[in-house]
Computed example of a mutant assay.
Amino acid sequence: MRVRVVTDTGEEIEEPFLLRLTGWTEARYFEEAPEDRLWEFQEGEVIVHSPATPQHQRLVGFLTFLLKGYVEAKGLGEVFNGPAVLRLRPGWVKEPDLFFIRRERLSGVQEKWVEGPADLVIEVSSPGTRRYDLKEKAGVYAESGVLEYGVIDPERREVVIHRVDHPGYRVGAMGESRLASTAVPGFWIEVGWLWQHPLPPALRCLRQILGER
C-alpha cells in the first residue's frame, strides 16, 4: 500500500509513507506486529512503513552480502535484516534494514528480538523516510548507544554517517569516496558501488574488501 498523490498536471503517483498508530503498548506490538512487514514501536506509537521498492531491496541485499560475508569470514559476530527486531531499550523497538552485533554481545539475541544497542545500523532511505531516518532515528540510536549509524540515500546519492565517538554524532555526507567502518574493524565499501545500475557483482566486491585477488 502507498499513498496516491495527484500532481499539478493531474497525474496520479504513489508516494512512500510512514503511518503512526497511537495507543499501543510494547506487549501488543510483539503480539500483533506482522513478521513480513516493517513495523516499529516507540513510546506508545507503532510506526508502519510503506512496502519496499525493488531498488531498495536490491541495495539492502547487496550490502547484506558484503557485510555478512565479511563478518563471517572474520568471525566478528552476526548480521541481521529487518523485520528482525532490535530492542534498544524498553519502549524503543526498531527494525533496521541491516544491523550488526559483535560476537561478545550475541548473548543479547533473544527468541523474539535482539537486545540492543547494535554496533552498526544501516538504513536505506527514501523521500518518505528521509527525515525520520536522518533526524528522529539518529537521535534514538545515539541515545541508546549505537556505535555507528549509516543512512544511504540513493536519490541524493549520498551516505550520511553518525558515530558515537564523533562530536554531535554526525560525521557528514559522502558521495563517491571509500567509506571505512569503525564499528566493524577492517570493513569498507566504495560508496560509488551503491549508485551503479545494475549494482556491481557482490562477490567481486567482497573479495576486494577481504583483500583477495
Results as ranks from 00 to 15, higher is better:
2 R>I: 12
3 V>P: 06
4 R>N: 12
7 T>P: 09
12 E>L: 13
15 E>W: 14
19 L>H: 08
21 L>H: 07
23 G>N: 09
23 G>Y: 07
23 G>S: 10
26 E>K: 04
28 R>T: 11
32 E>S: 09
44 G>Y: 08
45 E>P: 02
48 V>M: 11
50 S>Q: 08
52 A>F: 08
56 H>A: 11
61 G>Y: 06
62 F>A: 03
69 G>D: 07
70 Y>R: 04
72 E>R: 11
76 L>V: 10
83 P>Y: 13
86 L>W: 13
87 R>T: 08
87 R>M: 10
88 L>W: 11
89 R>A: 02
90 P>G: 01
98 L>F: 15
101 I>Q: 03
102 R>M: 01
104 E>Y: 08
107 S>R: 00
108 G>V: 05
109 V>N: 05
109 V>W: 08
110 Q>P: 00
111 E>N: 01
117 P>G: 00
118 A>Y: 07
120 L>N: 06
120 L>C: 10
121 V>W: 13
124 V>N: 10
130 R>F: 15
130 R>C: 06
132 Y>K: 02
133 D>A: 15
134 L>I: 14
141 Y>Q: 09
142 A>Y: 02
143 E>W: 03
146 V>W: 00
151 V>H: 12
154 P>W: 05
154 P>T: 04
155 E>K: 05
156 R>C: 02
158 E>P: 01
164 V>K: 00
165 D>K: 00
167 P>S: 06
168 G>F: 04
171 V>Y: 03
177 S>L: 09
180 A>Q: 10
186 G>M: 08
187 F>E: 10
187 F>S: 07
188 W>H: 13
191 V>C: 02
194 L>D: 08
194 L>Y: 06
195 W>D: 04
195 W>Q: 00
195 W>F: 05
195 W>P: 01
201 P>A: 11
206 L>N: 03
207 R>K: 13
207 R>E: 15
213 R>D: 14
